[in-house]
């Protein structure tokens, strides 16, 4: 596997290595090397029109030695995980999972798009699970909007009240009984590293 290319800057090589590491950690991850640049992924993606770099372009940029641009893009955070690209790819690339691999590389190396709140939602979600064992929807929404947009937080109050009235929004977090089990699993798995 051509992991390191001497013509590339050291940092690029380090990031590429981290990415290859991620890609080898899920089934059929290495099929990404077979990309034909046909564009089926971009064509079937329902949100590619809103991406700064399309799914096809991510592979092209990677091949051109520009992984940092990919990590800084909004693309990997806009993917809605619909898996259209994955079922359409003619050479069987797990495109969605490959975007996750880029996401993990980005978080691991703290290379995130600036002024972009989406990674904050992931962090808020993770801490909710560790605290309660389940997703506390009201708390998650509150924490996210507080960070992303106060205006949105205020404009969501009416909606929140409506959902509470319909019995569709829990006011208090429901903590599972054996939360210690979940925490022990998380701690142990965390010790094994990022993948």
């Amino acid at each position: 596997m051509p992991i390191v290319a001497e013509s590339l800057p050291k940092r690029e090589n380090e990031l590429r290595e981290a990415f290859w590491d991620q890609v080898s950690s899920f089934p059929e991850g290495d099929k990404i090397k077979r990309c034909l640049q046909c564009g089926s992924c971009t064509g079937s993606c329902p949100v590619s029109f809103a991406m700064d770099i399309t799914p096809r372009e991510t592979v092209a940029l990677f091949r051109a030695g520009m992984i940092e641009e990919i990590l800084q893009s909004k693309t990997i955070w806009i993917c809605a995980s619909c898996y259209s690209c994955t079922v359409r790819c003619p050479v069987g690339i797990r495109v969605t999972d490959s975007l996750y691999a880029l996401k993990r590389t980005a978080i691991d190396r703290k290379i995130l798009p600036s002024h972009f709140p989406v990674p904050a939602l992931s962090q808020a979600f993770i801490s909710s699970i560790k605290k309660y064992g389940r997703n506390y929807e009201l708390g998650l929404g509150f924490r996210y909007y507080l960070r992303a947009s106060i205006f949105k937080l205020l404009s969501s109050i009416g909606f929140g009240l409506k959902m509470i009235r319909l019995g569709r929004l829990g006011l208090l977090p429901g903590k599972i009984k054996r939360i210690n089990e979940v925490r022990a699993i998380i701690d142990k798995a965390n010790q094994m590293g990022e993948h």
């Binding site: 993770i126 699970i129 798995a189």
Partner: peptide, 18 residues
Amino acid sequence: EDWNCCGATMYMSVKKIV
């Protein structure tokens, strides 16, 4: 009994083994 969150895409996509 006492099931926990499946982790959703949000967890799995940023912290795989966890």
